[in-house]
Amino acid sequence: MKAFTVVKGIAAPMDRANIDTDMIIPKQFLKSIKRSGFGPNLFDELRYLDEGQPDADNSGRPLNPDFVLNQPRYKGASVLLARENFGCGSSREHAPWALEDYGFRAVIAPSYADIFFNNSFKNGLLPIVLDEAIVDGLFKEVAAHEGYELVIDLENQKIVTPTNEEIPFEVDSFRKHCLLNGLDDIGLTLQDAEVIKTYEEARKTTSPWLFNN
């Protein structure tokens, strides 16, 4: 998992409540054998004018000019601004996979669906919860200023706006630790690599036949 320390990037507004995981990544893409490569199909049904197919080339597909991420000013955005209950619906881990693969590192919204919230942390994507009024203020700023960039400083738990305004946010300390150090379950277990090796050495002595190949 990618470590998350400080992320600076353009914020893109998805001005809509209850964005579900089907919207984030439609079902036909779950046939994939990968957990990467979902980026081109993030928000597929909103983003393109035709129906997307797994493993198809997306470059020639007609884009929906009205969809926010298709506007040149939001190109390369890494912070997604959203409304309440973001990520509701199915439990597919493909949703954070797709957001991450597209290039998003953080989402800012007043609230999230539980499973999506958990899945995000496992995949290096930081979901930030802010007051509805503050989120609303950010939506207005983003609309008013082209190239509006936010700095997200996880260590100090603050968002810095282009006018140097600081917005503090909360995050569970254990999850913060994992994100800062880029630790997923595997990363955490590997902190015990020495313990595992010691166990393994002992096992080689008691059951050498398990280590013949």
Partner: peptide, 24 residues
């Protein structure tokens, strides 16, 4: 943490796991 002596793999549930190893 439980030590695993043997892992068997087949085509359906392994691709994303291999992909995960690669990415990391």
């Amino acid at each position: 943490l439980i030590y695993i002596d043997r892992q068997l793999l087949h085509e359906v549930t392994s691709p994303q796991a291999f992909e995960g190893l690669r990415i990391a």
